[in-house]
Design a protein around this nucleic acid. Structure first.
Length: 857
RNA sequence: GCGGACGUGGCGGAACCGGUAGACGCAGCAGACUUAAAAUCUGUCGGCCCCAGGCCGUCCGGGUUCGAGUCCCGGCGUCCGCACCA
């Protein structure tokens, strides 16, 4: 028999799918009542090449898409490009290519690579976010949000690279220096555009509760990120004369108003307005504020979390104890952007406050007595007590438990009119300004008289004639682009030169896929039909940012009337990475796997470099990365084993949410399986062959239906590795049951099912098998094989018998045999009897069709 | 520090609601085919012993249960996320 030849078979079937247009999405009308199913993988950034991580991601989505298609769903499975971003500009600076040319070149390259994977994608819906046809529509809804008050401009503190003249993202600041320039990064106040995501904080938090098809982990991460906290905001009045402009005292926020009587000082953030006002008059304070602003401190200080502060010379009065004065300090551990940027410190019951007070010799007064402690002897040394207890040293709160005291303190403060119970969020508004060229221009015109006004003619298109020979944003120094007229008053105005964070681009693309040709940003009818995405698949690294932004933007767009679906992703799956062993030569240099041969010598694995023959050190298994040179490119695999073997392997060895280790042996195993499946379809007799062994025929039929059930369940529940294991077992059964025994009918049934069961994973092979079976049409269009539970039932099952919990024998019984009967058979079993010798049976536990346990003593 | 996940053969992993631990694959070992190798096929493959049998065994120590990889309590370890959030 001819060996399976993927190089011939695979391209042929891809062409056949293409020609028949099988992956073209059907409209609801064409789908004629089929339920819809939207499968989406996080779209790639066009970096240049498809790597194994991409491949695994898209293959998983493809399995789901193909399976759902076979199950009778109307499937949407599109692909696009998250095409704006810094790497394109870096390429421009380093190699003099235009970002646009570089990006589109990469897209062409990666599209071709992706197509080789045989994905069931509707390529007619493809788009790239750097296309004005896409980002122009993004500008359109951005202005909708602007008009709805969800977009605003304010001064924000940013990381500024003084050499490259640009803002850097937090991830781009390494050890306080710009990742490209190596220059010390400054904190700078810049006017920035923000999206009011905090307006949706409550809803985004509550919505998490309904996301029962999301990983628990991701929901928790978002919950923590949103960070809802309830507490008390109240005012401290100055003792004596207040500094000018601060006559209304200092507003602080606390979650522990119950500990108010243990207050030692009031602290404010270094960038608190009061601190800045005081800095103007005191060089000491100015120096401290300046140091804190420079990213706080040295690295060592951040590591150890050293608390530092400076006394302002000011005092405030304790709100519950007139006459008791508390000093006001500026402290480096207080954040301006959380709460009110000011706190009261209770050192006995907060570790940071305690550290600070010990350092500056401030009083520590315990007010919460832990259960079982004696008020006379309880003491705080270097560790704060943050748990619950009974309040003491606290006037009217004395004797209350912490929870009651907390409520009482809030009630009293509200009665005094000095504060109120409030909710504070960790989540901050989303700064979307980037001083970058390769992004979506913010469609705003800045007019001297009218202020920022929506740009008139959309799309605001990026100019092509820009240069990257000087650092900074080319849009700013472009000779003409930014000059425009005010759409409101007609006077000369300047275009906004900031572009949008690329996370904006990816926060609505799934809605655009519903109809990427639509004139409005979102085709409401199409979006309402397709959304939410039923199954979204991508890496955990997007657990917070992308997924939170997308949830926010979808809600904002819903409120703007573009669609009625508020929650974009009903099901989320986060897949693991593709890893590989690392190899290192004696000189410390990493060696690529293609140049390595690993052998087992005396039970030990030894790596050898093929090109030189030298022995290599086998290192850790790590994420494939260029720096460790442990990358295996998809092309290499396709070339050696074909697409299907590669698709099979990335799914087979590990559960999909976990990392999978790429091994040569593993792919070879998958390649073997491909051939074994193919071999089963060989030599099917022309006419009918009667079953020589009726039991064998029955057994094969049972195995077939068990496989249909198990594989389907595996696909439904994202246990691809288990589904594949069941397929291997099924093929093993087929192999051991020659057609002479089973007859051609049972075998044809089995093969027909097998071709369809493997189709989502190894679609090309499935087509070849389907064709060989002589079936009409293509496997891709064939319905999922029907499962008949009656046919999957075993005639006889092996029932283990335990004596006192230890397995002592095995019974063969028909499924469903009544407990009484099983008990009798078990007690009369020879092996069991032997173990019961000298013992009296106390109790017999029979779990139907599972196990028998005889308790004897 | 806070939050979470995980810990099973030489390796990746399986085991649904507490019911035969180690499915399936990789590596290994033995054999068949071959002049030979590769490929393929067959068998074997947790440890130990007095080997048709038995004992031990799912990170460690307890507990619940007729029965625990699975549930509970207490440790140890690994990984991930957030991190001065008042």
């Amino acid at each position: 028999m001819a060996r399976y030849n993927p190089k011939e078979v695979e391209p042929r079937w891809r062409a056949a799918w293409d020609e028949a247009g099988v992956f073209r999405t059907r409209t609801p009308e064409q789908a004629a009542g089929k339920p819809k199913y939207y499968v989406l993988e996080m779209f790639p950034y066009p970096s240049g090449n498809i790597h194994m991580g991409h491949a695994r991601n898209y293959v998983m989505g493809d399995v789901v898409a193909r399976y759902k298609r076979a199950k009778g769903f109307n499937v949407l499975h599109p692909m696009g490009w998250d095409a704006f971003g810094m790497p394109a500009e870096n390429a421009a600076m380093e190699r003099g290519v235009h970002p646009k040319a570089w990006t589109w070149q990469n897209i062409d390259n990666m599209r071709a690579q992706l197509k080789l994977l045989g994905l069931s994608i509707d390529w007619e819906r493809e788009f790239a976010t750097c296309d004005p046809a896409y980002y122009g529509r993004q500008q359109r809804w951005f202005l909708d949000l602007f008009r709805r008050g969800l977009v605003y401009r304010k001064e924000g503190v940013v990381n500024w690279d003084p050499v490259d003249q640009t803002v850097l993202a937090n991830e781009q600041v390494i050890d306080g220096r710009g990742w490209r320039s190596g220059a010390l990064v400054e904190k700078r106040k810049l006017s920035q555009w923000f999206l009011r995501i905090t307006d949706y904080a409550e809803e985004l938090l509550e919505g998490l509760g309904g996301l029962d098809r999301w990983p628990e982990k991701v929901r928790l991460m978002q919950e923590n990120w949103i960070g809802k906290s309830r507490g008390l905001q109240f005012r401290f009045d100055f003792a004596g004369e207040a500094p000018a402009g601060f006559e209304s005292g200092i507003e602080v926020y606390t979650t522990r108003p119950d500990t108010l009587f243990g207050a030692s000082f009031v602290g404010i953030a270094p960038d608190h307005p009061l601190a800045e006002a005081l800095a103007a008059e005191s060089p000491d304070i100015a120096a401290f504020v300046e140091e804190a602003r420079r990213g706080g401190a040295t690295e060592a200080e951040i590591e150890t979390g050293e608390k530092k502060g400076v006394f302002t010379g000011l005092y405030v009065e304790h709100p519950f104890e007139p006459g008791r004065r508390l000093p006001v300090w500026i402290a480096n551990f207080i954040l301006m952007h959380y709460g009110t940027g000011a706190i009261f410190a209770c050192p006995a019951h907060d570790q940071r406050d305690l550290d600070f007070c010990r350092k500056y010799d401030l009083p520590v007064l315990p007010v919460v007595l832990p259960p079982g402690e004696d008020p006379g002897s309880f003491n705080i040394d270097q560790e704060a007590y943050t748990g619950p207890g009974t309040l003491y040293n606290s006037a009217f709160l004395d004797g209350m438990d912490t929870e009651t005291g907390l409520a009482e303190a809030i009630r009293r403060m509200e009665a005094l009119g000095r504060g109120r119970g409030t909710t504070v969020w960790r989540l901050r508004d989303w700064g979307v300004s980037r001083q970058r060229y390769w992004g979506c221009p913010i469609p705003i015109a800045n007019c001297a008289t009218c202020g920022p006004v929506p740009a008139a003619d959309l799309p605001v298109v990026l100019p092509d004639d820009v240069s990257f020979d000087v650092p900074g944003n080319p849009l700013v120094r472009h000779p003409s682009w930014k000059h425009t007229t005010c759409p409101s008053c007609g006077a000369a105005a300047e275009r906004e030169t900031d572009t949008l964070d690329t996370f904006v681009d990816s926060s609505w693309y799934f809605a655009r896929f519903a109809n990427p040709a639509a004139e409005p940003p979102i085709d409401t009818a199409a979006a309402d039909y397709w959304l939410p995405v039923d199954q979204y698949i991508g890496g955990v690294e997007h657990a917070i940012l992308h997924l939170l932004y997308a949830r926010f933007v979808t809600r904002a767009l819903t409120d703007a009337g573009w669609t009625s679906v508020r929650e974009p992703f009903a099901g989320l799956f986060t897949q693991g990475m593709v890893t590989h062993e690392t190899y290192r030569a004696d000189d410390g240099k990493w060696v690529e796997p293609t140049d390595v041969e690993v052998e087992t010598v005396d039970g030990r694995r030894v790596a050898r470099r093929l090109s030189t023959g030298e022995t290599l050190k086998i290192g850790d298994v790590e994420k494939m990365s260029k720096s460790k040179k442990n990358v295996v490119a998809p092309e290499e695999i396709l070339d050696a084993y074909g697409v299907d073997a590669g698709r099979l392997f990335v799914l087979s060895d590990s559960p999909p949410e976990r990392d999978v280790q790429w091994t040569t042996g593993g792919v070879e195993g998958s390649w073997r399986f491909v051939n074994r499946v193919w071999a089963e379809f060989d030599g099917l007799p022309e006419g009918e062959v009667p079953a020589a062994d009726a039991d064998a025929a029955q057994a094969l039929r049972r195995a077939t239906h068990k496989a249909i059930k198990a594989v389907g369940d595996g696909f439904e529940s994202f246990r691809f590795n288990s589904a594949i294991a069941r397929l291997y077992e099924f093929v093993n059964v087929l192999k051991a049951a020659p057609v002479e025994q089973t007859g051609s009918q049972a075998r044809r049934e089995a093969l027909s099912a097998l071709a369809r069961l493997v189709a989502p994973i190894v679609p090309h092979l499935a087509e070849a098998c389907w064709e060989r079976l002589g079936e009409s049409g293509m496997a891709v269009d064939a319905p999922w094989p029907a499962f008949d539970p009656a046919l999957a039932v075993d005639e006889e099952i092996a029932l283990p018998v335990q004596v006192n919990g230890k397995r002592r024998g095995e019974l063969k019984v028909r499924p469903g045999t009544p407990e009484k009967e099983v008990e009798q058979i078990a007690l009369s079993d020879e092996a069991v009897k032997r173990h019961l010798e000298g013992l009296s049976v106390r109790k017999v536990i029979v779990v139907r069709d599972r196990i028998v346990n005889i308790v004897a003593g």
